[in-house]
Amino acid sequence: MRRFLVLPTSRAGWGLLIAFVALVLAGTWPVIGLVNRATLVMGLPLMVVWSYLVIFACVVVMLIGNRIVERDDHE
């Protein structure tokens, strides 16, 4: 039992895990360093725009996740 772990069991599951990790990377260093500039985009600081892009990307990924979970019919 010592070597057993819970990991995704399908290609869609792995895709979802990769998307979750990508979202976390998008909001942390080093990615956040790339948008750390004192420029404005649509009147808002780039850091603020990026933060809300990450936030709304979370919604999109979870919406896709819902489709996968409900298609595969498991909780």
């Binding site: 979750f20 979202l23 976390v24 909001g27 850091m47 603020v48 933060s51 809300y52 990450v54 936030i55 979370c58 990924v61 979870m62």
Partner: peptide, 13 residues
Amino acid sequence: VFYVAIYLAYLAL
């Protein structure tokens, strides 16, 4: 301050 908004979104994940 926007680190708060980001971690709250991650809490949703």
